[in-house]
Amino acid sequence: MTRLIVVRLLFGALTLWAVSLVVFAATQALPGDAAQLILGRDATPERLAVLREQLNLGEPVAVQYMQWLQGIVQGDLGTSFSNRRPVAEYLASPVQSSLTLMGLSALVATPVALAVGAFSALRRDRAFDHTSSMGTLIVASIPEFVVGILLILLLGPGGLDLFPSVYARQGGPDQWILPVLTLSLAVAPPIVRMMRATMIEVLESEYVQQARLKGMSERLVLWRHAAPNAIGPVAQVVALQLAWLAGGVVAIEYLFNFPGVGKVLMDAIANRDVPLIQAVVLLIAGIYILVNLVADVIGLAANPKVRVANR
C-alpha cells in the first residue's frame, strides 16, 4: 500500500507541474508582448521596460519558465504589480481565511450529507427519501451564488435578520454562517445522492442480509457492515466536491465580500496582476490535487485487499 501511495504522490506532483506549465503559458508566454498586454492602456515606455525586466521577457521562453518555476519551488512567488509587496506575504492572510471557510464548509457538509444519504437509503421510497431527493435536486440545479442570494434574502438583514450578509473585519463569528451555509449547500447534493446510491447497493448485498440473519441490530448492520463498504466509492465524490470548493469559493467570497483568495483573484484579474494570478491559480490547483490524493488514499485504505496485500 505504501508503494501505491508513493505512486499516487508522484502522479500528484506530475499533475501540479503540468498545471504550472498551463498557467505559465496562459499568462506570460502568450505570443506577442506580454508586458504590452498586461499594461494595456497604462503602457508607457518606462513602465514597459520595467515590466519586461521584471518578467525576464528578454530571455527565451524556456529560460523564463525555468526561472519562474525555480522561484516558486523556493517559495518566491514574485512581487505583486499593484501593491509592490511580495505575493507570498500578501497572500498569507486571505489564504488562511479561505482555507478556514473551506474547512468549515467541508466539516459541516460532509457528515450531514453522508448521514442524509445513508438515512435516505434506509428509508428508501418513503417520505424522507423523496423529500431529500427532491431537495438535493433543486439545490443542485440552482447556481451556488443564486443559493447565496436567496439565503441572504431569506436570513439576512432584509429577511428574518438572523445573520449578517456582508463580512466586515470587526464583525462577530456569526458572519461566517451564511458563507459556510451557502458553500455547504453547493457541495452537499452530489454527496447525498452518491451515498444513497452506494448504500442502497450495499444494503441489498448478501453480506448485509447475512448480518441481519445473524440477528445483528440495524445500527450494527448499518455502521459495522454497510458503511465500511460504502466509503471507497463515496470518498471519490466527496473529494471531487471538496476540491470544487477551492474554485467555488471565488464567487461566494465575492458575494459576501469575504476577504479570501477568491476576492484577491478577482482584484488581481481586474488589475492584471500576473504574479498574483499565477500564485492563486497554482494554489487552487494544488488544493484540488491534494484533496483528490487524500480521497485516493482513503479509498485504498478502505479496501482490505489493498491494505493487506502490500504490508
Binding site: Y207, Q210, L213, K214, G215, S217, N229
Partner: peptide, 22 residues
Amino acid sequence: RALRGRAVAYIPQSPASALNPA
C-alpha cells in the same frame, strides 16, 4: 432478532458474497 443465530441460523449460497469483505 434475539432468536436469529441462537435458535435458527442461515448458511448462504455464496459465502464469497455473504461474508463481509471489509
